[in-house]
């Protein structure tokens, strides 16, 4: 039995009466136990400590992640190090017992993920990051849902970045290949003209060739001036394009530095990059 009696469905899986597909599993977390202000950057998750649920165990311990305009910041680390968790904390999906999140100087720690989107954060989740039943163009349109102005320019920009999407604009996004889906996902997030873009393992499950192409696109996006915060499984390739790298171990900042420095660091190479 779960703690919440309203979520106790007694294991019923009868698909004629219950439709779990596409349902929400996002739990917005609000506020922080203790504000922190140790560093300054355009987007900063400052000294974050916390875990899932009301009183789940802490996953992050005094973890700081920051990114500035024009930069690509990459979070890497071994499995279960809390990389994605750190990203979710910045995006407001984790209960913080300590720490603050600031965007452009403004404290957004108590905002829900939706509100953070409205403030200019673009987020691409690792899975389920497109509307599979809708066409590519509709996906982009939905990305721009909060915009009241004309977004056709932005759409052209996205098509410029990802030309393949223009060819497939009227195809349901669910029919595209893995790499193309990721492009749709990134394109959808770009449609809000975000001030910062956050990518959760954008290359998960795609072939190495597609991965290289995706990284090229991400660099291109970054050249337009948008700061990018990214979680990556493929540490070496990611650090190569990173301006800033965070190596997390068990929810703590183990190493921080520029991508080049980290790649050169003997200890980082030994422990995470396989020599």
């Amino acid at each position: 039995m779960t703690g919440n009696p309203y979520q106790d469905d007694r294991g019923n899986k009868d698909a004629t009466i219950a439709n779990p597909k596409g349902g929400s599993d996002m739990t917005p977390a609000m506020g922080t136990g203790k504000e922190m202000n140790t560093t300054d950057a355009f987007l900063v998750g400052d000294s974050m400590t916390g875990g899932y649920g009301k009183d789940g165990p802490d996953i992050l311990h005094d973890c700081t992640i920051a990114v500035n305009p024009g930069e690509i910041a990459v979070i890497v680390g071994p499995n279960g190090a809390g990389k994605s968790t750190g990203m979710k904390a910045v995006f407001g999906m984790l209960n913080l017992r300590q720490g603050s999140v600031r965007l452009d100087g403004e404290d957004i720690t108590s905002l829900s993920p939706q509100d953070r989107v409205a403030k200019g954060m673009g987020f691409v989740p690792q899975t389920n990051n497109i509307f599979t039943s809708m066409t590519v163009e509709e996906n982009l349109e939905m990305g721009a849902f909060i915009r009241k102005d004309d977004f056709l320019d932005t759409m052209e920009q996205v098509y410029g970045l990802f030309p393949i999407l223009k060819d497939k604009r009227n195809q349901p996004a669910g029919e595209l290949s893995g790499g193309q889906r990721q492009q749709v996902a990134v394109g959808r997030a770009l449609m809000t003209q975000p001030k910062v873009l956050m990518l959760d393992e954008p290359t998960a499950g795609v072939s190495p060739i597609v991965m290289d192409e995706l990284f090229d696109r991400i660099i291109e996006v970054s050249r337009t001036g948008i700061p990018i915060l990214m979680v990556e499984q493929n540490a070496r390739q990611a650090l190569e394009i990173a301006d800033k790298g965070y190596v997390l171990v068990q929810g703590r900042n183990a190493f921080t530095g520029t991508g080049k420095d980290l790649l050169a660091d003997e200890e980082v190479r030994k422990s995470f990059l396989g020599g």
């Binding site: 596409g22 989107v117 987020f123 509307f131 509709e138 939905m142 849902f145 959808r188």
Partner: peptide
Amino acid sequence: TRTGKSMRAYSDNEDLALLSGI
């Protein structure tokens, strides 16, 4: 219509719809 599409989007993927500001 925009509203109609947002309904389809919400049905397809509720979390992503929220992240899109629907």
